[in-house]
């Protein structure tokens, strides 16, 4: 098991963001953490990433914990945050090279990543001039620099237009075909989960509602798509703009 989290609780002042979340990821799985805004997705993935501390519960990554194996986990983990800006007046290449130096990764790898995220033509563009989709691809490129075993992406396509979204999906699909990576991705777009992930974890108000394969979820509920399933279970919508 690559990732195992048990009974995570997290409260912010009065908001119970996570109320006992448990989840296991096998190597090679592509898993979508699907839920509406405020469901607790970011809180959960940032706890997995070691950026936030849970009030209670355990996180094990490849059998290691953040407390004991901080450096070793960082080596096998790749991540992108929900929304990040990079150094405004530095180019795509310079930003990638900086992050590469943190992981002691050579410049050839930076070149490969640039090709992989389709940004060779943008290598000399300042990061402040990038579109939302390009910035997300740069963030993805940074996440891939250390060839991570576990890749965690927080809403990698939120706010992007359909074309930009598809470009990200294509990069992730290639990754899936290569088969060396395990992916946990948060989203509130049903289609994203359907296209990329065979396993869906439905999160709502800090609870996991469902955790099963896409087919069995559709079969069991008798609904056509995830939006309907969610609407049926909670009486609320997954997102306001889930039509891709």
């Amino acid at each position: 098991m690559l990732l195992s989290i048990k009974n995570i609780h997290k409260t912010f002042k009065t908001v119970k963001a996570l109320r006992g979340v448990s989840l296991d990821l096998q190597r090679g799985e592509f898993v979508a953490l699907l839920g509406p805004n405020g469901a607790g997705k970011t809180t959960l993935v940032e706890i997995i990433e070691g950026l936030q501390k849970p009030d209670s519960g355990d996180v094990h990554i490849n059998g290691m914990t953040w407390k004991k194996n901080f450096k070793d986990i960082q080596k096998i983990l790749g991540l992108s945050l929900q929304e990040t800006f990079f150094f405004d007046r530095c180019t795509v290449f310079e930003v990638l090279r900086l992050f590469a130096s943190f992981f002691k990764v050579r410049d050839e790898v930076v070149e490969k990543i640039l090709t992989r995220i389709g940004m060779q033509d943008k290598r000399n563009a300042y990061s402040m001039t990038l579109s939302g989709g390009q910035r997300q691809r740069l963030a993805l490129g940074i996440a891939l620099l250390n060839d991570p075993e576990l890749l965690i992406l927080d809403e990698p396509t939120t706010g992007l237009d359909p074309k930009a979204r598809r470009e990200i999906w294509d990069i992730l699909q290639e990754l899936k075909d290569a088969g060396n990576t395990t992916l946990l991705l948060t989203t509130h777009y049903m289609e994203e989960a359907e296209v990329l992930c065979e396993r869906i974890v439905l999160l709502d108000q800090g609870h996991i509602l469902k955790d099963q394969s896409l087919e069995s979820l559709l079969l069991e509920s008798g609904h056509k798509d995830l939006n309907e399933i969610f609407l049926n279970m909670t009486g609320r919508r997954l997102s306001d703009d889930s039509v891709v």
């Binding site: 990433e49 960082q74 990040t84 800006f85 990079f86 992981f103």
Partner: peptide
């Protein structure tokens, strides 16, 4: 404010 610090410390830097 632009979440860059957070991104940076999620690396071995």
């Amino acid at each position: 404010s632009r979440r860059l610090l957070r991104r940076l410390i999620a690396t071995p830097m």
